[in-house]
């Protein structure tokens, strides 16, 4: 196709159109999800709402919790429409409504900051900080080690042949299963605090970074390598002038994967060991005491944390690649 002129969007009108083209569908989908979520609250919570209402003296059909146990939630909601609003404001709903989660999130973050208790043990910010610090520490360890292994693999044939198959195979293994053991064993030899969790995060981010970087460092084509060979460039020069720059896009992509994996590692590392601090511990405590709103808000805090961390890498990626002339 040579005949159609494809022009880059330019001008204010085009920019607005591009933004609305990209944003509008996403907003619509998110709104639909929230709508479905509210709807789902009705059948999920109607049983307990009716029980509570009955206890408070309201007339519900049919009467008696045992009678209603096996009835469908939708049917019950239709039979007791006046009770339906209650499903959105229960204290321990099976499924909390979005605004309940949002309010809990605000109550445990922004409001506590405003009242000067931003880092109290009941603040989600505090727990998020605990998780964040071990995530980032682990991510840094894992990334440095992963890049190191990748450099070794690219430059040493024997390492490539011996280690690379294991690095690839290890990605198919549910490494996360070792998390409880690592915590307990390290605790028993006296290593406590954020280091055990960070090691799990490091372990999880290590392999994606290593495998991605091997791919990146090998991405220069034969022609480009031949060109440097005609200059009689040393291995180190080839690395700094060709392999390293061309691996950058791969580096950032694998860092994003590694960061997401590190966060999962930190959260799971906080779960099974009776830890009392961190988002994982909040999830676990919430599930012990049936505090569903707390579980959901911890979950959303984790999601926001993941989005911020991965987004941050994305921003750095854009800036670096732009500076290197690899992206516009």
């Amino acid at each position: 196709m040579t005949d159609a002129t494809i022009a880059k969007p330019s001008g204010l009108g085009a920019g607005v159109r591009a933004v609305s083209d990209a944003v509008l569908p996403v907003v619509a989908v998110v709104a639909a999800i929230i709508g479905l979520w509210y709807l789902a609250c009705i059948p999920m919570n109607i049983h307990t709402a009716l029980t509570d209402a009955e206890r408070a003296g309201a007339v519900v059909t049919p009467a008696g919790a045992a009678e209603r146990r096996d009835m469908g939630g939708i049917g019950l909601a239709l039979a007791n429409t006046e009770i339906v609003p209650d499903v959105f404001s229960q204290e321990r709903p099976r499924l909390p409504a979005p605004h309940q989660v949002g309010m809990e999130l605000w109550k445990t973050t922004g409001e506590m900051v405003l009242t000067g208790r931003g880092f109290s043990k009941r603040s989600l910010l505090y727990h998020a900080w605990v998780t964040l610090s071990s995530t980032v520490l682990g991510f840094l360890i894992g990334t440095v080690a992963g890049v190191g292994l990748a450099i070794g693999i690219v430059h040493s044939r024997v390492m490539n042949m011996a280690v690379m198959p294991w690095a690839i195979a290890s990605q198919t293994i549910p490494i996360l299963a070792v998390a409880p053991m690592i915590i307990v064993v390290l605790n028993s030899v006296g290593v406590t605090g954020i280091l055990p969790k960070a090691l799990i995060s490091a372990y999880l981010s290590f392999f994606p970074v290593a495998v991605g970087m091997v791919k990146g460092l090998r991405s220069p084509g034969a022609m480009q390598l031949d060109l440097l060979a005609t200059y009689n460039a040393s291995q180190a020069e080839t690395f700094w002038k060709l392999r390293m720059p061309s691996s950058m896009p791969y580096f950032f992509t694998s860092m994003k994967i590694g960061m997401a994996a590190a966060l999962v590692g930190a959260i799971v590392g906080e779960m099974p060991t009776g830890a009392v601090r961190g988002l994982g511990a909040r999830l676990l405590a919430g599930s012990y005491y049936g505090q569903t709103v707390q579980i959901w808000s911890a979950l959303f805090a984790a999601a926001i944390l993941a989005a911020v961390l991965v987004g941050l890498i994305g921003l750095i990626q854009r800036a670096v690649l732009k500076k290197m002339g690899m992206a516009s």
Partner: peptide, 11 residues
């Protein structure tokens, strides 16, 4: 005539 972001193009 194609409508492009640069205005119409008479193909």
């Amino acid at each position: 005539t194609f409508q492009t972001n640069d205005g119409p193009v008479q193909a």
